[in-house]
Structures are given as structure tokens and as C-alpha cells.
Design a protein around this nucleic acid. Structure first.
Lengths: 252, 252
DNA sequence: GAGTGGTCTAGACCACTGC
DNA sequence: CAGTGGTCTAGACCACTCG
């Protein structure tokens, strides 16, 4: 089925699209994940099983899984097996909220949904989310509090088709993080995001929610999140009060 | 010399400090880098040579180098060899300045050194840089312009001992980036950094330099940079005007 | 003890670079 | 052409988890 040599191999002059066997395996595993063959948090087959399924050696499967583990798509656990990464895993919790207190220890925020309504995508939302203008979208507004103090107000735009059942009630009932909810209830797993940060002056509505003076500086964080296959599925804008917190980033 | 089995191997109950052979090799290569055995941009010995030098198989050296390449410490080039990563490499240029224009294409900034003076470390600078209060430090102020417009003003604190020869003249003569200069002239290579971002109101001096109204929101970026062995060697605070640019971050 | 991932080895061959 | 990194394989053994 899969062959590294013979027909599939092509010299660089003939074809620039050659990819090594372990990347082909990676694509197949990715495809299975996208198809929901194994859900977030679940155990995938052992390396040996996958090797025989794809008719390659264990080492080749291992290299494919290595890359996917490095990309936080899979999680290896020695002696147990390899799991599909999940936002319910506490280890993945702070990957998408890089906010830490200026002093003191890290604490989990409390999320309060404020509003949730249906709308039609404007030109920009359509462009960002890969929709057509006028397509249905869902907008969520919510507040994040640390130690009882409001720190972040978010406005979140989602494709209406994918998140059809989402409502303020569903959001209020959910105890888990937003991304855990998306994963569990809508089968959408966020695997990557781009954030664009700017400093802006607080407008009245945001200032009141965050309990800061109107016009004070806020951190504006615009995020586009992608699921498998680099499909954008969330557009979000947050305003962060950086009086007692800051956005922590590691440059490697 | 190196042995994976026998004495060096210890059961987890006996010793939690066990590390696999390829990590020991990695440490040795790291140590050689730290000692300046191979300088940034230079070619290191081939995998085969390193394997025989350390008396391990090529595969083990390969795994050590794999990790170091993933950490941007080394750069592999098929058919040529493995190089010590360098900030002079244009590919590494934007890793440490995540500023992109809101519209239009990426452009290289023009750096203008403003001041450079000697001082004694205060309590905070000493703590951050791992010095004693009162130790000599060097402070640099500079301006970054994109398309002729001022966008960033930086204040940079460096350990005086390591950067002894640094002066405004040296900075002005240098055509390369600051980190290329540090690498070439002082043998200090930055390999990692932490940035803490906040939104602040522009004070008069910064506002004038950045040509924005006093009190307008600016992005404050505080950076601690580390060299080999996680030794902090730079403390920096930048104020970014985000009128026409934003700080771009990838969440993986 | 059986099954999993983790490490190490050795050898073959491919792809790229430069002489 | 020789030398480099890149891929693939097969087999051995180690470390961890669980029943």
C-alpha cells in the first residue's frame, strides 16, 4: 500500500512534492484524528499496531508520532500508550491563556458568560473564518476573573454551522474551559492559534466591566484559532487589564 | 568513556537523576558550544566524527543533535553539515522581534542608538541579571524605526563585566543587529528569552520619541534573555507604538 | 508477566552539496 | 566522486504501568 521506493519516490527535478514515508504516515494519522476515529483524551493504537496497519516498521510510526507529539497533537505516556491531546488536560490549560499575575502564584480564572447571540458574518469575520459574508455566526461575550477581580473581557466569533447548539445556557452550565466544551460538545479541537497584540485605550463599556477608568491602557489580543487542516474556526478579541497581570511569552 | 549500562545506569528508585545516553551527548555538545569550541555560524564535526569522539553510535549523536536543532541551537543542512545557529542568519532574525505591520509587508527596522552609559546595578537589575547590587552594568537606549517612523524605544541593561567594551560608538558603527554584535564582538549568544507584556500610558519622554500624544496606550515589553546554561545576560524594556504595528505570537 | 513507549545499535540506501 | 545529513529497517534491551 505504501511504498518508499519505486513509483512513489521521485527525484527533486521531477517533483518537488516528495515526502518521506513517516510524513505520509503522519498525514494518515492526522486524517484519522480529523475524522474522529480517536477522540480527544482517548488512547490511540500502539506503535506496533499502527506499524502493521500501515505496513511500515515501528521506527517509522515512531517518527511520525514524535512529530505529532512535538506539535501537541498527541501525548505519549510511557508504559500506557499514546493519547489524543485534549484541552481538558490541565497540562494544556495555560498554553492558550498566557496571562500570569505580576506577583504571586498562578491561579485559574473564573469564566462568566455575558451574552450569546446569532448574527450574520460581516466582510471581515467572513474573511477570517473562511465563510461567505452573510453566513450565520455566533457571538459570545464573556468575562474572566482572577481572584474575584475582572481581568479579561472577550468577544468571540464562531461559525454558526459548526457551533449550532451553542447558547448562553450551554455556556453557563459548562464547568470546563471553553475549549474543553468545544471539544466535547461540538467535536472541534483547537490545535493552533495566532495572536496579534496591541495597546488600546479602554472604551466605556469595557472600562466598566474591567473596573478601570475610561481611557486607561488595555492589552488588545486578537486571536484566530485553527483546527485540523489549518481550518480557522474561531475569531476572538480580548481586552486584558494589565494592572495586576501580564502576558507572558517565551521566545525560543 | 560513556556507558549506557553498568554503573552509570541507575534504577529510578535509587536515583532520579538518570539521563539517557543521547542527553549526556547533548550536554557534552552544549558544553563545547559554551566553551566556544565552535563559534556561531561555524560547522561542527560530522555525526560520524562526533559518534567516534564520544564512542557512541551515529544514531545517538543524531538524536542529541535533533533536539538541539529543535531548540534552535544548531542548524542542519543536508549535504553540507551541521552549523552553530547564529543571529546573523536572516532566518533567525524575526524570532526575537515579533513585530509586524498591521497592513503591508514585513520590513527590517532601522536601529538608532541614543545613549550608552555605565551604572551600578540596582536591586532589581541585580536580581534579574544574577549580579550583586552595585556591580557594574551598561545601559543602552535606542530607537527602532520602520519605514522612517519611530515604533519602538528600548532601554537595555547588560552586565558590565561581559560587555566591557560596549559604547555608543561601537553601537553606531555596527551594521548588524544588536544580537549579532553581541555574538561577534562579545561572544555572547542569546538562545532564549521571556517577554512580559503590558499596556501602559505613554510618559512624556517616550511619547516625544515615538511621536504619539502623551498618555496614549503603548505596549510595554519586558524581556530577560538567556545564554547557554540558562544564564541571564540581558534585561530589556521596550515601549512599542501599536498604531501601525502589532506584536504577533503563535500559540502551538 | 504482558504490553506499552524509550533507548541504543548496526547497516543499507537515498538526497543533497561541492570538488 | 566522496562526504554529509535524511530515511528506513530490524532487533535487542530498558523503564514504566497495570492486572
Amino acid at each position: 500500500m505504501l511504498q518508499f521506493d519505486s513509483m512513489m519516490r521521485q527525484s527533486s527535478a521531477d517533483s518537488p512534492t516528495f515526502s518521506p514515508l513517516y510524513r505520509q504516515i503522519k498525514s494518515l494519522i492526522l486524517q484519522a484524528l480529523d475524522n474522529g476515529e480517536w477522540r480527544p483524551g482517548e488512547l490511540i493504537p500502539s506503535e506496533m499496531e499502527l506499524a502493521s496497519r500501515f505496513s511500515v516498521s515501528q521506527g517509522t510510526v515512531r517518527k511520525a508520532i514524535d512529530e505529532m507529539a512535538a506539535e501537541n497533537l498527541l501525548v505519549r505516556r510511557q508504559g500506557k500508550g499514546t493519547y489524543v491531546a485534549s484541552h481538558s488536560d490541565p497540562r494544556a490549560f495555560f498554553r492558550f491563556l498566557r496571562l500570569v499575575p505580576l506577583t504571586g502564584v498562578i491561579e485559574s480564572p473564573k469564566s462568566t458568560p455575558l451574552e450569546c447571540w446569532r448574527a450574520k458574518a460581516g466582510v471581515e469575520a467572513a474573511r477570517v473564518l473562511g465563510l461567505n459574508a452573510g453566513d450565520p455566526i455566533i457571538v459570545v461575550r464573556r468575562l474572566l476573573e482572577f481572584s474575584g477581580k475582572p481581568v479579561v473581557v472577550d468577544e468571540i466569533y464562531l461559525p454558526g454551522e459548526i457551533f449550532a447548539g451553542l447558547s448562553l445556557e450551554v455556556l453557563k452550565e459548562s464547568q470546563a474551559s471553553l475549549y474543553s466544551l468545544f471539544e466535547g460538545k461540538f467535536g472541534v479541537r483547537m490545535i493552533r492559534a495566532e495572536e496579534r497584540l496591541r495597546a488600546v485605550a479602554a472604551e466605556r463599556a469595557s472600562a466598566e466591566l474591567l473596573k478601570v477608568p475610561e481611557g486607561s491602557p488595555l492589552l488588545s489580543v486578537e486571536r484566530i484559532s485553527y483546527t485540523y487542516g489549518d481550518r480557522p474556526v474561531e475569531w476572538r478579541r480580548g481586552l486584558y487589564s494589565t494592572v495586576e497581570h501580564c502576558y507572558l511569552n517565551e521566545l525560543g
